[in-house]
Design a protein around this nucleic acid. Structure first.
Lengths: 217, 217
DNA sequence: ACTCAAAACAAACGTTTGTTTTATTATTAA
DNA sequence: TTAATAATAAAACAAACGTTTGTTTTGAGT
């Protein structure tokens, strides 16, 4: 569904003569930086996180940070990319997509998406909040990936409508609403802490399905 | 339902001897500042909007801004307050709340909330994005108001469940999901521009109601 | 005409920002 | 070993930030 991983646009692929070992170290450091920085972005927000904060958190010297990333925006771009690859892979990797029966298929994909989104709620919240900071070129890539995620559900729903297993007035709208509902906890956890993870997932799944599958009482 | 308008905490009520006319001018200026600043916050984000930007947009001298507001955060607080008062008043002012029949009541309140939220989508988006910047003390006030908005729907749903007009597993959860669904367009308009306002409102209303009212096919 | 406080203004304050540079030390490859 | 490379710490950089200052202009009340 997705073509080969597109490189983050900002990065200058400075692949000068590096031994494999060096490349490995370089990559590991970069991953570490992005991971720690993401945590800070989640906790304090992108603008409120300084490069000096990131240097402290990673233990890497401020000036030396710029050997691994080309700038602050770069870190955010990579973080967005990582998360989106993650969620798409998780959902797609299992053969759920080959399930024939519409209801079972929808339920399976939905449940998996719900669980992942719940566990990565902080990352998702950051993405909703900080999208504005992304460079234009990179924003397009992210929105395209998001569109593919919606399309995944749209297709499932459309097929189900054909076979009269589902009933919705517009599969594209239904898919958008569904994807949005999936992110309920990420965006409103402050008002939903009273539920356990399983309680919450069950109720959310039920509510979402009732809008698509008839006779779901 | 809400007590008398709470003053924004940051503001020092410098009600020294001012003629009514002067007070009027002062208030008008303040409203104007908040309005223009909100537009900037919506367009560029709070952190990315400088006091100099606001000075330019309002035509008020940078230093002089501080005669009307006590700081940048103050503007954001007032903006949050204004929006929340607005949406709560709009929803409550009409006597919809006195409708007896659960379905009709839910539909009426829901429709009105949907329309307002659609029209103020930009403000709502800003609130979701910039909540983090709010001072703790003020955040509590806002969350309380939000809670009241959810409670409004929770009560309606709970009553409907009693009379078996509605069927949901948990009225509190249902109300939260409903309020969240209302903000669909605000948070995902970039993927929903193909629909007209009325198309969108109709579909959203239908989808929301199907999760609450049985036999809504 | 005089008074005085509010309003307006430009300039500057002190910080913090992202980023670059420098000089020194440690690590690694040939 | 030796020469290149990477890592460190510290300082420097220009730009931008929110806020305050000192001074001037304005306008209504006496």
């Amino acid at each position: 569904m997705t073509d080969t991983d597109q490189p983050v646009p900002n990065r200058e692929n400075s692949d000068k003569k590096l031994t494999p070992r060096q490349q490995q170290i370089f990559k590991n450091r970069q991953v570490m930086i992005v991971k720690k920085a993401s945590k800070l972005f989640i906790k304090k927000g992108y603008s409120q996180t300084s490069m000096r904060d990131i240097a402290n958190a990673t233990g890497i010297n401020l000036g030396n940070l710029y050997h691994y990333i080309s700038g602050k925006e770069d870190i955010l771009c990579i973080a967005f990319n990582n998360y989106h690859n993650l969620i798409m892979e998780f959902v797609i990797k299992n053969d759920i997509l080959n399930i024939k029966e519409p209801k079972a298929k929808l339920k399976a994909v939905l449940r998996q998406s719900l669980e992942i989104t719940y566990d990565f709620r902080n990352d998702l919240l950051m993405m909703y909040r900080e999208t504005r900071v992304l460079p234009r070129k990179f924003l397009k890539i992210i929105l395209k990936k998001e569109g593919e995620f919606v399309k995944l559900f749209e297709d499932i729903i459309a097929k189900g409508v054909e076979s009269q297993a589902f009933k919705v007035s517009d599969p594209f709208f239904a898919a958008n609403m569904l994807v949005f509902q999936i992110s309920l906890y990420a965006l409103r956890s402050w008002n939903l802490k009273q539920f356990t993870r399983e309680e919450f997932l069950d109720m959310t799944e039920e509510t979402i399905l009732r809008a698509i599958i008839p006779d779901t009482l």
